[in-house]
Design a protein around this nucleic acid. Structure first.
Lengths: 114, 114
DNA sequence: TACTTATATAATTATATGATTATATAATGG
DNA sequence: CCATTATATAATCATATAATTATATAAGTA
């Protein structure tokens, strides 16, 4: 794991955002690559506006970046984020979320976004 | 760095507590060994009750443990905490707080606790 | 153009959080 | 026992946060 040292003031906003079930799950999903918004709403079983607002916070903080492709918006981890190493480190400590995405795949719910 | 995988539900409460300037500083200070409450209040420049309440949260969550010695209470990281590896990992990403303790030492403000 | 799907935003409201002030407890020294 | 020092707790209040509902935007399609 990398050793980029952050000032407390830089780390706190990132950690504040990580300390939420929805957002930590989102980031866990993104560890395996980009996801589209509809996948988050499926996995999180939350309303679309709620997911959208969590994404906005992560986006405003530069933790994730978005990429609109037609109707869909895909999110991914922003490797240029100052606390990227910290975020990755934390994600590495939580259980893999890829199973949840695989589950979507099985249910054919991932196709819709592609 | 260790690889204890936590469920999202276990990691979130820890991260919530880490996402605060006072508490993250406290944990950064504890990385170098135990500290007594008066040291936290000095370094953080916060009121004693405020510090005490942050310590309570960390204690309730089992992130730190306390050890009363006479008039003073010393805190240290709880190595048995389920998310200890996560906490250590995060602390390793923030700048060293030992300088602040050294500064106390220079000002003779650390002696009072010993 | 109208309709649909995907996503974002805004307003509202309920709950959580943190700081302050006052007070309580616990240990120590006269 | 009383006073002092260190720490904890409780009550209050202001602010932050998250979910919901309604609405807006943006892209695709008939």
């Amino acid at each position: 794991m990398k050793k980029t040292r952050l000032e407390i003031e830089e780390a706190v906003p990132a950690l504040k955002l990580l300390g939420d079930k929805a957002r930590l799950t989102i980031l866990g999903m993104l560890k395996n690559g980009e996801c589209c918004v509809c996948e988050f709403t499926e996995v999180l079983e939350m309303s679309q506006p709620s997911v959208s607002q969590h994404l906005r916070k992560l986006r405003d903080a530069k933790i994730v970046k978005e990429d609109r492709r037609g109707q869909w918006v895909f999110y991914s981890l922003n490797e240029s984020y100052e606390a990227y190493d910290l975020v990755l480190g934390v994600i590495d400590h939580v259980s893999d979320q890829s199973e949840k995405i695989a589950e979507l795949e099985r249910q054919g719910k991932r196709i819709e976004c592609k």
